[in-house]
Design a protein around this nucleic acid. Structure first.
Lengths: 116, 116
DNA sequence: GAACTAAGTTACTAAATGGTAACTACATTT
DNA sequence: AAATGTAGTTACCATTTAGTAACTTAGTTC
């Protein structure tokens, strides 16, 4: 039985791939988790650190800076003493919610299917 | 103005985090793209390699093996000559589609917003 | 018989990533 | 006065990750 040469191409996920575009923002350890927490409510640095459990301050700082640079997260210094810093999702950041939610939902389904 | 000690905790994304669960499967370079292509139709090794453009065969093999081990992808050797190998999504793999689609959709929105 | 296709494998390298631990400065609480 | 909380920073290290390039086996087309 000779090999069949298939010539059909699948159109690629269109130019400058939206998949890659979105993943370049939510990629990296902890990032989706951070966005998840911020989607619930604005959080302070130390609160996020606590929420996430074993993240190091170094990585948390890195992630927040990148998210801020990407326009996804807003950083606000509050005039308390000592000053506190509150992070929240920007409008652009809110756009990410559906993706995070979909991933969470699939995660639930995967867990359910695994347990059977 | 004294610092406000906030005591409320945000409930963590529930035990053994579904977010992390799902990301452990779709994480890693090229993985979401591979799933995207397979969600359109079953694809052969060389077809995927072509679809993805600049992926190396080493990485493609790695990704496919892991996806197969995770029960997300089915690998079938076809009795052609030379033998060809067809990859497709399993039922479990199909569960991932909504997440990939959501990411793609958000990617579109991000691109649209950026261009303004 | 040479070149090509299919589906990879292997050895090596470079870069990115994440983690650890210690440190800062200032203010408040005990 | 000491400890704690706030929001980080810095230097260093280990691991992971991805990429390159060359190679394999076997059949098939030119």
């Amino acid at each position: 039985m000779a090999v069949v040469r298939r010539k059909n191409r699948v159109a690629p996920p269109p130019e400058k791939c939206p998949l890659t575009e979105c993943l370049s923002i939510i990629g990296g350890a902890w990032t989706p988790n951070i966005i998840w927490y911020l989607s619930v409510q604005p959080r302070r640095f130390s609160e996020l650190k606590n929420d996430l459990g074993s993240i190091s301050p170094k990585v948390l700082t890195e992630r927040l800076k990148r998210l801020e640079a990407d326009g996804v997260v807003l950083r606000e210094v509050k005039p308390t003493s000592p000053p506190t810093v509150e992070y929240s999702l920007t409008e652009l950041g809110n756009e990410l919610k559906p993706a995070i939610e979909a991933i969470v939902n699939v995660g639930h389904r995967l867990k359910a299917l695994k347990q059977q």
